[in-house]
Amino acid sequence: MSETAGPAPEEAPPCVAVRDLVRTYRSGRGAAATEIRANDGISLTVRQGEIFGLLGPNGAGKSTLVRQITGLLRPDAGSVELLGHDIVRHPDRAARLLGYLGQESTALDELTVALAAETTGRLRGLGRAQARGAAAEVLAELGLTAIAQRPLAKLSGGQRRLACFAAALVGDRPLLVLDEPTTGMDPVARRAVWRAVDRRRAERGTTVLLVTHNVIEAETVLDRVAVIDDGRVIACDTPGGLKALVDGDVRLDLVWRDEAPVGVPAVAALRERAECTGRRWTVRTTPEQARELVAAVTTGPAFAALDDFTLATPSLEDAYLKLGGRHGGLAK
């Protein structure tokens, strides 16, 4: 399916233009080998200055897509253009157009934070003094100066991730491709990341392509989001636009103290429809039904067994499930 294009925030020219991208892998060996279509005809356009997200469960094909956009992987078919450059034909140009934060830090692990940032800057073509200055600036901006002299391998997961993010920022690029940048970060570090991203966009019009499976993050920071499932774009819109797909429905979460009181008829009926994760039951329904359900569980024996309940408007995850995402693997 091609993109169901939502309105771009501005009619800015495209930064990333992907058309009908196909990439298959062979899995297994010999006669038992099967072909897996990691990307099955993906098309999307990221406009300049946009913060664009790729949302989807593990194994949906997000990383494969990003590896093709960054020139790390050649597509079987389709085209990738970055700021007017054909990346399928000239994959080496990607490195001169974008800053990439991958999921692995092994290349930097044993360097100190300062040296990792400075070296990355030098390898992005900066002179020595320039790289050192730019690295110091980015470390200060992200609050890493205090740990600048510590090796990455000795840092906590979140700090290490932030240090790698710092390295990705040294040596300005018009496009940042960030693969799950905030994994393992505390809220302070997360805010530092989004502030740095925001600043670059405001001052230099930097475009950001973000891979995430964190719905909260997707809702708060993205201009537009493409939902990817089984190697296809199943929807592409603003977070608000996607949530409008499930407008009208609400989500009721019930948490039982112990065993669910299935003796209560309403609860027994609910069990058939709810998504049960341990003591937590989740049901998506109309507001009228939700009101009835809340009334049923907040009286009598059901209420006695109830630990907590929440009634919420739909989230991106609800939209994702409604869209037919089969894996339900999104983090809340």
């Binding site: 590896r67 960054t70 020139g71 790390l72 080496d92 990607a94 490195a95 001169r96 974008l98 990439y100 991958g102 999921q103 692995e104 830090s105 092994t106 290349a107 930097l108 990355t120 390898l123 992005r124 073509g125």
Partner: peptide, 12 residues
Amino acid sequence: TGGLDHYATLPV
């Protein structure tokens, strides 16, 4: 571990 990606996405 995919650490080569770091260098491969730098213009070196």
